[in-house]
């Protein structure tokens, strides 16, 4: 039997997502860059909840913290909360049409952005910036694309190694 949920694939998609998160896009477009790592984590937690759990979300949160030079635990906290929601609702969410899913994704992304904002306020002064909405909305718009691409990545035939 083909193992659709081999952890190698999940890891590769997450590494690509981390690369996209720090992609060198021009400063004018930078506020629109959505949180790709969270989108990919959400997808995998819905598609393969037995492989991607809160622990994975937490570890990749820690890695994202290091990558983007944040306080330790900032992304870890946000990601594990969102993934907890997704894991609890994954059976229902799978039945939803993709637009309804996107609405749920919108709330997930917003929740994580707000958490990050509040944590950032501990260390330094940050203004409530309207730009957090931009990345949330763009992330929601990109959800169908992420869904399709990752579904393809999940169902693509693995290379036979025997």
């Amino acid at each position: 039997m083909i193992n659709y949920y081999s952890f190698g694939r999940i890891l590769i998609t997450l590494i690509i997502a981390m690369g996209m998160k720090i992609a060198p896009i021009p400063p004018a477009l930078a506020p629109y860059n959505p949180d790709w790592v969270l989108l990919v984590l959400i997808y995998w937690s819905l598609a393969a909840p037995e492989r991607v759990g809160i622990f994975h979300a937490w570890s990749f949160g820690i890695l994202t913290d290091v990558l983007t030079g944040r306080l330790f635990g900032q992304y870890a906290l946000a990601y594990s909360l969102v993934i907890y929601l997704c894991l609890n609702l994954h059976k229902r969410l799978r039945q939803f049409p993709i637009l309804q899913q996107a609405l749920f994704i919108f709330f997930c992304l917003l929740l994580s952005q707000l958490l990050l904002f509040f944590i950032k306020n501990i260390k330094q002064t940050a203004q409530m910036d309207p730009s957090i909405w931009l990345s949330v909305i763009v992330g929601t718009v990109f959800w169908p694309l992420v869904y399709t691409v990752l579904r393809f990545a999940r169902l693509a035939k693995p290379i036979e190694t025997d």
Partner: peptide
């Protein structure tokens, strides 16, 4: 698990 993850995050923070 969520409880553990949240606690660990806050401790690290």
């Amino acid at each position: 698990r969520l409880f553990v993850a949240v606690l660990a995050s806050i401790a690290l923070l």
